[in-house]
């Protein structure tokens, strides 16, 4: 069971600032971490490896500094890591990123499962995972909250929906994006950290993965960002205090008022 986990380096803050002029995320002075949703992807990969054997390869596209999060992936237990890094990738939107990662995955070749976090906490698009599956032309199950079974070349998983969940079966290889309900990510181990310190991080450039120039970076990114803004903070909820009957009556009146 060979598993590829896609991870992203994101700023360590939930209060991401956006440059009002360039509309880009302000990354300076903010510590970079593994995208929290990707931690669930790593954990699931490690658990499946512990169950079925094989290996887990963590892969990221990013600047040379993104090496740090790959070392963290090793300290958690990932066997191999690949950094896909090239100046030519700068300005990639989700389409170009999905394409680039899928080219790197094609180069890794031998895999049964690709696992991604459901989305990154900076861009929140949730598009790269499905984009990789589409480019590779393999099946995908998004928003997986539980892997039920992997048997005879098939995977059965529960995917969370707004109303509940669906049980989906797919042929392998397959790409999953996972939600936080799927597991409780482990902390790194001391031995893992020692290994991470001396591990060699493989770096692949655009040419190494045979990426077409027209499909990477700005050229390969059809997305036009017109505006990005911080949504207004959610206003405080209203609390109806008092006896239950009284409070319910007030709540009912209030909702009725909204409907008119």
């Amino acid at each position: 069971m060979n598993i590829i986990v896609c991870v992203k380096q994101v700023p360590d803050t939930t209060e991401v600032r956006i440059d009002p002029v360039t509309k880009n995320l302000v990354r300076e002075g903010v510590k970079a971490i593994i995208n929290p949703f990707d931690m669930y992807a790593i954990e699931e990969g490690l658990r499946l490896k512990e169950k079925f054997g094989g290996k887990v390869t963590a892969i990221t596209m990013g600047p040379p500094q993104a090496e740090a999060i790959l070392r963290e992936a090793i300290s958690l237990g990932c066997d191999d890591v690949v950094l896909v890094s090239d100046r030519g990738f700068a300005g990639s939107d989700t389409l170009a990123t999905g394409y680039t990662l899928s080219k790197a995955i094609e180069k890794i070749k031998d895999y049964d499962l690709i696992i991604c976090g459901k989305q990154a906490i900076d861009g929140d698009t949730a598009q790269v995972g499905p984009g990789i599956a589409a480019t590779l032309d393999i099946a995908q199950i998004a928003y997986v909250r539980k892997v039920e079974e992997i048997k005879d070349g098939y995977i059965t998983a529960e995917r969370a929906t707004e109303a509940g969940y669906e049980v989906v079966q797919s042929k392998l290889p397959c790409l999953l994006t996972v939600v936080k309900e799927i597991n409780d990510p482990r902390l790194p181990s001391l031995k893992g950290k020692m290994r991470a310190k001396s591990a060699v991080v493989t770096v692949w450039k655009a040419a190494d993965i045979l990426a077409e120039e027209s499909r990477i970076g700005l050229k390969g990114s059809p997305t036009w960002v017109l505006n990005i803004f911080t949504p207004p903070p959610r206003s405080k909820g209203k609390i109806f205090a008092g006896e239950p009957q009284e409070a319910v009556d007030q709540l009912f009146e209030s909702v009725k008022g909204l409907l008119h």
Binding site: R186, L187, P188, S189, L190, K191
Partner: peptide
């Protein structure tokens, strides 16, 4: 369990016996 998985129970034990 968390301490164990992080190898902290072995910090004072010789590597020969699985420690750090």
């Amino acid at each position: 369990k968390v301490m164990g998985k992080s190898d902290l129970f072995g910090v004072y034990i010789d590597q020969k016996y699985g420690g750090m």
